[in-house]
């Protein structure tokens, strides 16, 4: 039956189109109704919330870089370390970041007294493993002959990192960053807003705003606006920053 469809399929397809059309019409109708009212006053927070969240993500990213880059270089140079660290990292990565959150919040709020620190820490747990695994893979993929070449030319260690290791790691650093930021956004939504013992802890941020719109205010328009803003900023970052960097890095810093 390569060509032509049976009548039943036609009926199903027709029904599908009808349902989709009806739903679209209802959604558009609801949107028009919702947006014809004045915007919820929390909507003005959106730009500031985005900036605050970006700040948290950036901070978490920098912390993740600060430990994953040196560790993966070390692992790349030392097979024995690789055998010890890799399984530990695998266990760490397999624990869902969100599951740790209650613990992190309780500890960090007690110790550092700040929901901000807790939030950054949770974003970090959602971000760092992607970076680590990609970087380890990148470091171990550096051809043996390149290491021997650097060694036999007696490149000093820091020159070796500068000329060989860091450029070789760039493509995997960017792959890790792209997936890591994805994980980071994911963790962000639950990291900025936390209910414990009937008390709400939250910070200014797009994730918190979304949670508040959902759980406290039940405001559909605010939900849509925050979601839209978040999706918009994620797409923008991917298009303008990560994709370009990635293309540049794979063009220039790739082994053949």
């Amino acid at each position: 039956m390569a060509r032509g469809k049976r009548p039943l399929e036609w009926v199903m397809a027709g029904a599908g189109i009808a349902i989709a059309g009806y739903l679209t019409w209802r959604a558009v109708d609801a949107l028009i109704a919702a947006f014809s009212q004045p915007l919820p006053h929390d909507a003005v927070q959106i730009p500031f919330a985005i900036l605050a969240s970006l700040g948290r993500l950036t901070l978490a990213y920098l912390i993740a870089l600060a430990w994953t880059v040196p560790l993966s270089i070390w692992i790349g140079e030392n097979e024995r370390v690789a055998r010890i660290v890799t399984p530990i990292a695998e266990i760490g990565a397999s624990i869902p970041a969100t599951a740790l959150f209650p613990l992190i919040v309780l500890f960090v709020i007690r110790i550092f007294g700040g929901m901000n620190a807790a939030s950054v820490l949770l974003v970090l747990t959602g971000m760092q493993w992607y970076l680590l695994f990609n970087l380890i893979a990148g470091a171990r993929a550096i051809p043996q002959e390149l290491k021997e070449m650097a060694h036999s030319l007696r490149l000093p260690r820091w020159r070796y990192w500068q000329r060989v290791v860091l450029p070789a790691l760039l493509p995997s650093l960017l792959t890790g960053s792209i997936t890591g930021w994805g994980g980071g956004w994911n963790a962000l939504i639950v990291s900025e807003y936390f209910v414990y013992n009937q008390k709400i802890y939250h910070v200014l941020g797009i994730g918190a705003l979304l949670d508040r719109a959902t759980y406290e205010l039940g405001n559909g328009v605010l939900i849509l606006l925050t979601l839209g803003a978040m999706v918009g900023i994620i797409i923008l970052l991917n298009r303008l920053v990560w994709r370009r960097l990635y293309q540049w890095a794979t063009r220039r810093y790739r082994f053949e």
């Binding site: 002959e145 036999s152 030319l153 000329r163 450029p167 220039r252 082994f255």
Partner: peptide, 25 residues
């Protein structure tokens, strides 16, 4: 000094910079 089977050149450096590598060190 070693010459390698698969050349062991750094793809991100020009010919000149590759040749200068050992001198830089």
């Amino acid at each position: 000094a070693l010459v390698f089977q698969s050349f062991a050149l750094l793809p991100w450096l020009t010919v000149q910079a590759n040749v200068e590598l050992g001198l830089e060190a």
